[in-house]
Design a binder for these strands. Structure first.
Lengths: 346, 346
DNA sequence: GGTCAAATTGAACACGTTTTCACTTCTCGT
DNA sequence: ACGAGAAGTGAAAACGTGTTCAATTTGACC
């Protein structure tokens, strides 16, 4: 038997555990892999000694041979001020339970995802990649990422909804927004609102485009006029200024749909503190996301909610299905939204 | 020369690049490691072919032999609602530039860090670990993490400040709070404030303890009475309720120090929307952190600011110094704070 | 042209694991 | 008691890279 070190420093290795337990190194490996055949009492003894020696199989070595790193790459423009931070938070917890870890990367805040960053991430060889950033073409992603199949979080445009696109290059979580928006418009209509403004998110983002078009569709279906569009970029500050412009320069509105909750906060603060308008008496406001701050008293925002738990479960499901069948064609999951009624509509 | 595959699928390997470039595999390795001797034109040619084949050295293999994973583990209780999310955000960007990636782990929100999670993280073998969670003893951390030397972000208590503790088990970033708190109290004193309340963070957290004790020290130094303590846990909701109790049941106060900005928001909303008090006319409020939301019009919070850039640079410096000298005794960096004046004091 | 130090090169080994493949030992039905 | 299938075992071969070391080439100087 080979002479293993007393591990005076550095991690204990499988060879050391094997020596201590009077078994082969292979047996140690098997003890840590559930679906291998090893006499139960033997496995028990090995695990006990491993615990005693503070031994865990080296993930780098394991990755080298198995091809699995158990890392899930996530690319975000901003960890703080976004719906995505909630999702990262919940995803990290869920993935931890499945034996994965979150590998975080930051791209520029203009939602552009450069190839350099993708290549950088690829170097870490994640098992899966979740693209929160939309402004990258699936083909670019697939070309740079040779192994992991990326998961797109997508907001289908009206008409695309049921279409099976079956793209084998990536998997997809579709978030439909019709239901939530329709509930919001119905509520507004009940208060007699007719003139609606849409406070945009970033121009090129599909989340934004989808929300705007779906809103148009819902308004049209109910015989209401098309929305006025105010420019924005999902940020508080831009929304604040855009709202001021909408009322000082533009035509104003009876209700504002903001592309996200942060934008809605900006709109609310502009209406109340700058334009001296009352919400909801003078203007009504609806957001998207339902982040933690939305229930705070200063805002108390009525908003279109994504079910976070459901969403996280769907993503984890996509990851596990993909890893179980690496060559399967593009997988899809679809979720719906609903309205959370608070104080900014009436 | 060994027959390398055409890489019909899967990553390109160093052997393939070597074959294509008519060099040895070792030369390819050297081409990617800057401080090795290789004829420049040769390195150029190898890198060109590597780029063409979309080749990057496998980090798992590299980690196996070099012992460096280029991963930095971060443990947080909450990614969304915290000062930490800002720090994670900025740290991730800075670390990316140095060739590292952020490995994110979530612990329970009660700030307790179980050994199981530490062992789980250890399996990924990060080069460095940043402990945002305070409720774990350095010895526990050092015992579970055999390789990485953890970095503690610490808020020294009054009196501990200059003391070189020289603990070799971990490195430390000290954040002093005297200056910022002193500036805040001086400002309040200028408005004639004498009765100050401190709205706590989580009881066991050193950030909280340090803020409370430093506030006591500053008040005493200026001949003002000791603060009334209202219980809290760094969250909006708890702060909201605690503020109501402070005024309905307790003695009230002329000014409130909240242990963090989120708590300050809760206090502000409780004062204005529940207690119908005016800020800053009736009660003045000061927070800690200066997060992004603190400048929003609804809050416009006067707060003790941590310089994020400076802080991130200090942490990166600690990481690099530690990796350059793995056996050095405990490293330390020390930073100060300052007050950001906005609208909640006067 | 000759000499010596410095720069460059590649074969062999090491890193710690999983996987494959024969081989041995059990288990159970006849 | 016998065979056959199942379960358990360990030696050896990967996985893709960095590092060591001795051999070779280059460059500068006289």
């Amino acid at each position: 038997m080979k002479e293993a070190q007393q591990h005076p420093q550095g991690r204990a290795t499988a060879a050391l555990v094997a020596e201590r337990a009077n078994v082969s190194r292979v047996a140690v490996s098997r003890a840590f892999n559930p679906h291998t055949s090893l006499k139960p009492e033997k496995r028990e003894r090995i695990l006990a000694i491993a615990r005693e020696l503070n031994y865990t199989p080296d993930r780098a070595a394991r990755a080298l041979v198995s091809g699995r790193t158990h890392l899930v790459g996530m690319i975000v423009p901003d960890v703080c001020s976004n719906w995505e931070s909630q999702e990262i938070d919940a995803l990290t917890t869920a993935l931890q339970a499945e034996g994965f870890a979150t590998l975080l990367f930051k791209t520029r805040t203009d939602y552009s995802m450069d190839e350099q960053l993708l290549a950088y991430m690829r170097g870490f060889n994640p098992d899966s990649v979740i693209a929160f950033v939309e402004n990258v073409r699936p083909k670019t992603l697939a070309r740079v990422l040779d192994r992991a199949v990326p998961i797109y979080i997508d907001y289908p445009l009206p008409g695309e909804a049921g279409a099976a696109r079956g793209d084998p290059l990536h998997d997809r979580l579709n978030v439909l927004q019709y239901t939530g928006i329709d509930q919001a418009v119905a509520l507004l209509e009940g208060y007699g609102v007719r003139r609606v403004a849409y406070l945009s998110g970033s121009h090129k983002s599909r989340a934004n485009t989808s929300r705007e078009r779906t809103l148009r569709q819902v308004l049209a279906a109910r015989g209401l006029p098309a929305p006025v569009i105010a420019p924005g970029d999902f940020s508080y500050d831009t929304a604040y200024q855009a709202t001021i412009d909408l009322f000082r320069v533009g035509p104003g509105a009876e209700a504002i749909f903001a592309a996200n909750d942060f934008g809605a906060f900006g709109a609310l603060d502009a209406l109340r503190h700058e334009l001296r308008l009352r919400v909801p008496e003078d203007v009504r406001v609806v957001g998207f996301d339902d982040i933690a701050q939305s229930h705070w008293k200063s805002y108390n925002l009525t908003t279109v909610k994504f079910d976070l738990d459901e969403r996280v479960r769907a993503i984890v499901r996509l990851i596990l299905r993909r890893l179980a069948a690496p060559d399967a064609p593009g997988l899809e999951e679809t979720l719906d939204t609903r309205l959370v009624v608070r104080g900014t509509v009436g």
